[in-house]
């Protein structure tokens, strides 16, 4: 049976269809989950997609974390379920306390919409298991608040525990330690600013997002 991936839809999400299509393309089963529902059904993994959930009012992710579905997503993550937050989804996961740190406005205050090179820093996560350390991936970014910030202690912990999974080759936004993506201490929750779901077809200029989402599907096959 194909692993089933739930993609959360908030008012203001705008990447849920891209994620939905990319998962189906890779042979997974995808399902849109409405933020106002408390249930995530029988999914094997969850993607919190990009966009501007609840208009990014107050702070990106600040209001989305109170959506009824987030309590269930948090419980799913605590039980070991694979959860990936992409872009605004990463911001939601930090606000929800599922990942440490915060995403600040980009250095230089530019909204960045471009394709960047990432380097795999750890393959021990639900999003990078099918990649190789040092592998370079061309993946689009599309954000204003992607500048990863945390305390010195948190950064030291992320480094010591090998929880920085993806780094920018050429840091576009001022992120600490070139961080593009991190994982939780149990390695089942990953947040990243770049959009792997937009790099899954030749037509879109890169297919480097496929090994990342393929990793998620592999993680979803294994019962949490």
């Amino acid at each position: 049976m194909s692993p089933r991936v739930g993609v959360v839809l908030f008012p203001g999400s705008n990447c849920e269809q891209d994620a939905f299509e990319a998962i189906r393309d890779l042979g997974g089963d995808a399902e849109i989950l409405w933020h106002g529902d408390a249930s995530i059904g029988a999914v094997d993994a969850v993607i919190v997609p990009g966009g501007f959930a609840h208009g990014d009012y107050l702070r990106p992710g600040a209001i989305a974390r109170f959506s009824p579905i987030m309590a269930t997503v948090s419980a799913f993550a605590r039980d070991g379920g694979a959860v990936v937050g992409i872009c605004n989804g990463f911001q939601v996961l930090t606000e929800a306390g599922l990942l440490p740190g915060a995403l600040q406005k980009n250095r230089g205050l530019k909204f960045l919409c471009t394709t960047v090179s990432l380097r795999v820093a750890s393959t021990d996560s639900v999003l990078t298991s099918e990649t190789v350390i040092g592998q370079e991936l061309r993946i689009p970014i599309n954000h204003f608040e992607g500048n990863y910030t945390c305390s010195a202690e948190t950064l030291a912990e992320l480094q010591a525990e090998d929880r920085i999974v993806l780094r920018y080759v050429d840091n576009p936004n001022g992120s600490m330690d070139d961080i593009a993506g991190i994982c939780s201490s149990e390695r089942n929750v990953v947040g990243l600013m770049p959009h792997p779901e937009r790099a899954c077809r030749d037509l879109l200029g890169s297919t480097d997002g496929r090994p990342l989402l393929q990793s998620l599907l592999e993680a979803a096959r294994i019962p949490a």
Partner: peptide
């Protein structure tokens, strides 16, 4: 100690 891109701009 937290960088403020708006303030510095």
């Amino acid at each position: 100690g937290i960088a403020d891109p708006q303030g510095s701009t």
